[in-house]
Nucleic acid binder design. Structure first.
Lengths: 217, 217
DNA sequence: ACATACATGTAAATGGTTACATGATTTA
DNA sequence: TAAATCATGTAACCATTTACATGTATGT
C-alpha cells in the first residue's frame, strides 16, 4: 500500500484504505456527482465497498486537490453549485498504479468466529440461534449478489454498459467475466460460511462424550 | 451489538467492536497480565483477533472500571506496580450475554476483490503477480492455522490445557472440537480464495474474443 | 556489561460511523 | 402544498494503527 508523501501532506501512511480508488474506478465508467456516488456506495455496489456521505464528500475535494478527478461547476437555482466529477489522466494513472501494487491483506478480525471460539460457555440453543440468524442474513446477501452477477454476465447493469461504451468490443466478454467473477467469490464465500455454521450447530448439539468413549469411537 | 449506555458514559454505541470480549474470553482460561495479553493478541491468537499494546492497556483499565475484570496489584523492584487481571463473575455474565447476542456482520470491504473488479484496466502480468503474491501469503497463513488446529484437537495448546483444567472431563472433547472448528473455517476460506485467485488469473490471460466468437463457443 | 525479554503506558493520526443541518427540485 | 428525492455538507465519536517513551528483570 506504500503511498508516497505528497506536497500537501495528505496520505503519508501505508493503510488499507481503498475508498479513494473505489471512487476512481467507478468514475472510470462515467462522470458522476457526489450524490450519485453516495447512492452508488450505499446501493448498487454495497457489497463490494460501502461508504456514507460524510466520507465521500470530503474525499472528493481531496481527490480533486490531488488532481485525480475534476469537478465541473454548475449553477443551480440561485446560488447552489453542483459539481460533476470526472476521472483525469492523472487519476487513471493512479488507478493503474494502485492495481499493480501488492495487496496487503488485513489481519483476520471475524466477530462470529471469535464468538464461536467461546460457544462452549454459552447456552447451546442461544448459540444455535445466533448461527441461524447469520445464515439467514447470508442467504439474503447471496440472492442479491447472484442477481448482480447474472446482470453483469448479461452486460445488463447501467454502469457496465456505460463502461463498455468506451472499450473495444472484443474486450467486452473479458471485462464482464472478470467483474462477475468477483461476485462469484462473494457467493462461494457465503455458501462456505453457511456450511460452517451448520457444522458448528451440529457440534453444539453433539452428545457429550467422556474421553474414553471418544477414544473408543 | 446493542450495548447499553453505562453510568460513566463508556460504550454508548452499537459497534462491532469485539476486542473487549476477546479479552474476557481469553481471561476465562486463566488470569493474565497486560503484557501476556499483548503477546497473545500479537502472537498465538493473531489469526482470530489482533490488537496492539496501545489498544490493550487502556482497555484493561476500562474493563476493570466496568467491573468485568479485576487487577491484582503487585510491587515490583522499587516502585513499579504490575497488575494481574482475572475475570470476575460480572465479566463472565457479560461474556455470556455477548455470546447470545446476535452477530452483526459488517459490510463487505475486501480490497483485493475491489482491485479485481478493475483488473481489466491493469497490465495482466502485473495483476497476475498481485494474485500470486496473495496466494503465497494465504498458504503461509494456512500452514499456521493448520498447526494450531491440530494442536487444539490434541488438546496440546497451553491455554486450552489451562481452560480444560477447570471444566468437567466429559466436556473436553466438545470444547476442543468447537475451537478447532473455527480454524477449520479459516483454512477452508483461505483455500477457497486461493482457487478464486487461480481462476482470476486464468480469466486475465484468456484469449480476447469477439462477441460473435463468444456466442459461437 | 549488554542485550533481550518483561512490563506499561501516552500521543497523534486515520478510516469509518452516527447524527445533525440545510436547501433545491421534482412529483403526487 | 406536502412529501420525496436530489444535493452537499459539518461535528462528534469510535476502533485501530503507528510511533514514541520508560523502566525492570533475566540470561549470556
Amino acid at each position: 500500500m506504500r503511498r508516497n508523501v505528497n506536497a500537501e501532506g495528505s496520505w503519508a501512511s501505508i493503510h488499507a484504505m481503498s475508498l479513494p480508488h473505489a471512487i476512481l474506478g467507478v468514475l472510470e465508467a462515467r462522470p458522476m456527482t457526489g450524490y450519485e456516488l453516495c447512492r452508488f456506495f450505499d446501493g448498487t455496489a454495497r457489497w463490494v465497498w460501502t461508504a456514507p456521505q460524510s466520507q465521500i464528500y470530503p474525499l472528493l475535494r481531496k481527490l480533486e486537490a490531488e488532481g485525480w478527478i475534476e469537478g465541473e461547476e454548475q449553477v443551480r437555482g440561485e446560488r447552489l453549485k453542483r459539481t460533476n466529477y470526472s476521472l483525469t489522466a492523472a487519476g487513471m494513472d493512479e488507478l493503474r498504479r494502485w492495481l499493480g501494487e501488492p495487496h496487503a491483506e488485513p489481519a483476520v478480525r471475524d466477530g462470529l468466529l471469535l464468538k464461536s471460539l467461546f460457544f462452549d460457555l454459552a447456552d447451546p440453543d442461544e448459540a444455535a440461534q445466533v448461527l441461524e440468524q447469520h445464515v439467514a442474513e447470508l442467504r439474503e446477501r447471496i440472492e442479491q449478489w447472484s442477481a448482480h452477477r447474472t446482470a453483469l454476465l448479461a452486460r445488463d447493469t447501467p454502469l457496465l454498459k456505460e463502461r463498455l461504451d468506451h472499450r473495444p468490443a472484443e474486450t467486452h466478454e473479458r471485462i464482464a467475466r472478470l467483474k462477475a467473477h468477483a461476485f462469484d467469490h462473494l457467493i462461494d464465500q457465503a455458501e462456505l460460511r453457511i456450511r460452517w455454521c451448520e457444522q458448528t450447530r451440529e457440534l453444539l448439539h453433539a452428545p457429550v462424550t467422556t474421553p474414553e468413549a471418544a477414544a473408543r469411537a
